[in-house]
Structure formats: structure tokens, C-alpha cells
């Protein structure tokens, strides 16, 4: 299992375990972590699973996927260089311990 820590806007943290191949989005939904809406279910058609990857982890999460940038323009909260759609980050063993910050608003 791969540990992921979600940091809420109020600073509180939740650490849950996900399976390899699952996304950061689906792991949050499966484990009942609030703050990710994922209206489109992971088809990269909305921006309601926006997260900010901890700067220490961006090397391992890699670059945004093709088209992700466009969709982030529709995000409800401000986007920065660490912004990703969490449905596009797939868990791999090297992401064990990943930390992502959730935005104030998703819709």
C-alpha cells in the first residue's frame, strides 16, 4: 500500500493508504477524505479534484499531462506551479509518503 497525506485548507492532515495504480483522486474518495469533488470521475473533464503537490514531491509526480493545463484554468481556487488534477497522478511505490495540499474550493 502507498501512503498519501492530504492537507486541508485549515492545516489539518489526513494520511490514508492507496493501491498502486489508483489515482490520488480515487484514493481520497475511497477513503472518505473530503475536499475533492471529482465531478467527472477522472476523465479530465472538470477541475474539481485540484490539489497542490508538496514541492518536495513534484519531481516524482512528474509533469502535468497533456490537456491538464487547459482544464486547470477552470479551477475554482487559485492555481500555482504545484497545481495538479489529482485524477492524473497515479500511485506508484516511489510516491509512498506523498503529500498534497487541497484548495479552499473545488466548485
Amino acid at each position: 500500500m502507498i501512503k498519501v497525506t492530504y492537507i486541508h485548507p485549515d492545516g489539518s492532515e489526513e494520511t490514508v493508504e492507496g493501491r498502486e495504480g489508483d489515482s490520488v483522486m480515487s484514493t481520497a474518495l475511497a477513503q472518505g477524505v473530503d475536499g475533492i469533488v471529482a465531478e467527472c470521475g477522472g476523465s479530465m473533464m472538470c477541475a474539481t479534484c485540484h490539489c497542490h503537490v508538496d514541492p518536495d514531491w513534484t519531481d516524482r509526480t512528474g509533469a502535468r499531462k497533456d490537456g491538464e493545463e487547459d482544464m486547470l484554468e477552470s479551477a475554482a481556487s487559485p492555481v500555482d506551479e504545484f497545481s495538479r488534477l489529482s485524477c492524473q497522478i497515479k500511485l506508484t511505490p516511489e510516491l509512498d509518503g506523498l503529500r498534497v495540499r487541497l484548495p479552499e474550493e473545488q466548485v
Partner: peptide, 8 residues
């Protein structure tokens, strides 16, 4: 297409 049909 995604861009033309985005949430925005």
C-alpha cells in the same frame, strides 16, 4: 474538444 467544452 476539452478546451472548447471546459467547465469555464
Amino acid at each position: 474538444m476539452s478546451r472548447a467544452l471546459s467547465p469555464k
